[in-house]
Structures are given as structure tokens and as C-alpha cells.
Amino acid sequence: MRTVRSILGLAGVGLAAVGLWKLLGQDGADLRDALLWLVGGAVVHDAMLAPVVVLVGAVVMRVLPVWARMPVVAGFVVLGSATLMALPVLGRFGAREDNPTLLDRDYVGGWLVLALLTTLGVAVGSWWQRRQSASRGDEDNPGGDRAHDVPAADGNGFRAARAAAEGQSGT
């Protein structure tokens, strides 16, 4: 284990060094732009995308009944990641008038179909979960069916956001 880790670690440092050397060998303007995109991608994720996802988690936990949570989260993971991945084709930013074979599908139409299928899947999943919990609830937890009437214990999100939102200065 120790040997494997050492070899893997050293190889990793070496390979990353090769990459950095190749990257830093680029021309000044190219390098500046590449560094901008390197840092920009992570900043967009950490400062914009991730907080939005945390917020969605908090909303899911506070607003949705228990039986709908997993299906909605699954639908969000599927549609959210597919949409992000498809942004370049949805925007058709690379389209060229002289090349009709490039980006030649109805991407927005395809997205709508995917969104519809996802919504259907979430609806069916929620219905199934509700049925499951209802039948289980009859056996060992008669009150379980009411779970969704009670505010969730806490969100998927972080307390600081809530504390700030509710005007509290501390916990």
C-alpha cells in the first residue's frame, strides 16, 4: 500500500509538472487567457453553481413532502447536468452559415423532450414513493403519512445562509 501510494504520488507530481511546463510554455496572451479560463471555471462552479445547488437542496428539504424529495433530487441531477453539458449546443454558439451539417439538430426541442420525460419520471417516482411509504406507514408508523405536513428538520443547505436570511447574527 505504502509503495503503491508513493509511486502513484510521485508519478502524479511528475505528470502534473509536465503539464504545467507545457502550459507555461505558451505565448503570453495565450497563457493569460488559458489561466483566466482555468480559474474562471472553478470560480463559476464554487461561487455560482454550488451555492445554487445548496439552495435547491434547502428548498427541497423545507418545501417538499418526504416522498417527493428523492425523485425531485434525481430529476434535478439528471436534467441539471444534462442541461449544463448541452449549453454549447443549446446556444448553437459554434454554428456557421457555411456549414449546415454542424449543429444541425433541434436542440431546444430535444431539451424539451428530455425535460418532459424527466418530469414524468419524477411524477411516477413520487407516486411510487408515496405508495410505498403509505403501505409501510400502516405497519409500524401510523403517523408516518403526515410527515410532509411538518417542516423538515433542516435543509440540505447550510445554516449560515438561513441564519443570515432570517436576520440572525449568530446561532
Binding site: A16, G19, L20, L23, L38
Partner: peptide
């Protein structure tokens, strides 16, 4: 503005190297 090919190639080495280190 950068050349896609050379930047994607260079960063590929950074990615695979830092991934190996991370796994280690």
C-alpha cells in the same frame, strides 16, 4: 484566444497528474 489543442493537451497532463496524486 488560446489554441484549443495545445491548452487542452497541456492541461490534460495537469489533470491526470494531479488526479494520480489525489488518489495516492
Amino acid at each position: 484566444a488560446f489554441s484549443f489543442r495545445s491548452a487542452h493537451y497541456a492541461v490534460a497532463w495537469v489533470a491526470i497528474g494531479s488526479l494520480a496524486l489525489h488518489i495516492a
